[in-house]
């Protein structure tokens, strides 16, 4: 095993980790602000991938326009779902959890009815690979990494420095105090749902050309997102980034050296983190 081999392992981990970051960031954002484990998040990811497929394949739009439109469509859908289903159960933990599961099942079932069970593909806008020092990097994965970094940086800056971002953090810390300061809790939640759904849409759009698209991809995605946010800290965007990258590296290294038991490593990691830091790596009590 050579230097190039080990470098490839790390690059694979980075690429895998960035896919997890993309999916988990929106999931974590919703929990952070709304205290809602949105199990339907994976289905928004699936719908984002299908939206990109339809926009590129059926309407012939270019890939980046399709990404932007997928994000907008998912944001609108997210707002609708919030107002129709989540808002009536705001502050009720158990009912909103069941509703989130039901919405996930409903969207998954409707996806199957509308799109069919066949795996579909989005033509790669950036085909081919480049080799650097014996390490293979596919162009489409490089694009995913770059766009994911841009999205995460934008989200982090938005939440930290923008007026609405500050409002989100205020609502996240103390809803009643925020409301007393004149912050609209409902409008903040609406915005949070829109951003989170748009992120899921972006993840689906970005990963669609790499993998395939079918109505079942959301289920696996949301499971990974849950592992990532528990490791990183529920509700923390830096935690989602750290958790996603950590899981990506662990799985890449595990696949290389441990083989068949790799899938368990994510859960082992969750247990270890919970034992020593129950709030997650970047979470707070």
């Amino acid at each position: 095993m050579t230097f190039a081999f080990f470098t490839q392992v790390l690059v694979n981990g980075l690429m895998l980790g960035m896919t997890y970051v993309l999916i988990a960031s929106g999931f974590s954002l919703i929990y952070g602000i709304m205290r809602l484990l949105n199990f339907a998040h994976g289905e928004f990811y699936m719908l984002g991938a299908f939206a990109t497929y339809l926009l590129c394949e059926r309407l012939g739009l270019d890939y980046f326009t399709a990404i932007a439109l997928s994000m907008i469509i998912m944001a609108i859908l997210g707002v609708l779902v919030y107002h129709l289903f989540f808002r009536p159960f705001r502050d009720q933990h158990d009912p909103s959890l069941v509703i989130a599961l039901a919405i996930a099942m409903l969207i998954g079932g409707l996806g199957l009815l509308i799109f069919g069970d066949e795996d579909k593909s989005v033509p790669s806008p950036f085909p081919g690979v480049i080799k650097v020092l014996g390490v293979t990097l596919s162009m489409e994965r490089i694009v995913v990494i770059i766009v994911a970094i841009i999205l995460m940086a934008t989200l982090t800056f938005y939440i930290k420095y923008s007026r609405m971002g500050q409002a989100m953090r205020a609502v996240s810390q103390d809803r009643e105090a925020a409301a007393l300061q004149g912050i609209g809790v409902n409008s903040t939640f609406t915005l949070c749902m829109a951003i989170s759904s748009a992120l899921a849409g972006a993840a689906g759009a970005l990963l669609a050309p790499l993998f395939f698209v079918n109505p079942f991809i959301g289920m696996h995605a949301v499971l990974k997102a849950l592992i990532v946010v528990v490791i990183g800290g529920l509700g923390s965007i830096p935690g989602a980034i750290a958790g996603g990258l950590l899981l990506g590296f662990v799985e890449s290294i595990g696949n290389t050296f441990l083989g068949n038991i790799t899938e368990m490593l994510g859960f082992v990691l969750v247990m270890v983190v919970l034992m020593f830091r129950p709030q997650g790596l970047f979470g707070y009590e």
């Binding site: 081999f5 490839q8 392992v9 694979n12 981990g13 690429m15 895998l16 896919t19 990963l207 790499l210 993998f211 395939f212 991809i217 289920m219 696996h220 499971l223 799985e251 890449s252 595990g254 696949n255 290389t256 083989g259 068949n260 790799t262 899938e263």
Partner: peptide, 16 residues
């Protein structure tokens, strides 16, 4: 080697 159903990134396995 075996992989978990739902896996979509096979790079780590294939690299080995």
């Amino acid at each position: 080697q075996f992989y978990e159903r739902g896996t979509s990134d096979f790079y780590p396995l294939l690299n080995k």
